[in-house]
Amino acid sequence: MTSKTVLIADDETHILNVLAMKLNNGGFNVLQAEDGAEAFRLARSELPDLIITDYQMPRMSGLELSSRLNSDPATSAIPVVLLTARGFSIAETQTISPNIRCIMSKPFSPREILARTQELLVGDIESVGATA
C-alpha cells in the first residue's frame, strides 16, 4: 500500500525492535538508529519520510536532532515525532523546532504510533484513533 520510509531512533533496543516490527507490519520501510548522532547521519543520507525519535538519547538528544535537521534545507521538511519519558511537558522548558509535528509520552502504544505515522504520511484519517 505504501513504500514510505520511517527512521526510528531510541537507545533502548527493545523499543526500537517493537516499533520496527509494528511499522513493518503496517507496511512501512523502517530504518533504526541507537543514538541521536547515528539518527542524524541516517536522516541526511537516507532522507526518510518520517522520523520517530526518543527525547533522551546518548550523543545527541531528540530535540537537538530535530533542531539540526530543521536547520538543514535537505531535511527540514521531514516531520518528526518525539517520544518522551520525562515527567513534564517539553514545551514548558524548551523551544521546539517547527519540524516536530507531534510529541508522544512514554509508555506509548505501538498501535497509536502506527496510527499517527499513517496520519502524517498517508493522510488516512479513518485509521487514526489516537491522539498525542
Binding site: 517493537v18 507490519n25 533522551q56 515527567g87 512514554k106 509508555p107 505501538p110
Partner: peptide, 23 residues
C-alpha cells in the same frame, strides 16, 4: 525517577499490546 521507571514500563506495555494485537 519517573523517566527511569517509564523506560522498562514502555517495553512492557508495547510488547503486551503486540501480543494482544496478534503481531
Amino acid at each position: 525517577v519517573s523517566h527511569e521507571l517509564k523506560t522498562p514500563l514502555s517495553s512492557i506495555k508495547a510488547y503486551m499490546e503486540m501480543l494482544l494485537d496478534g503481531e
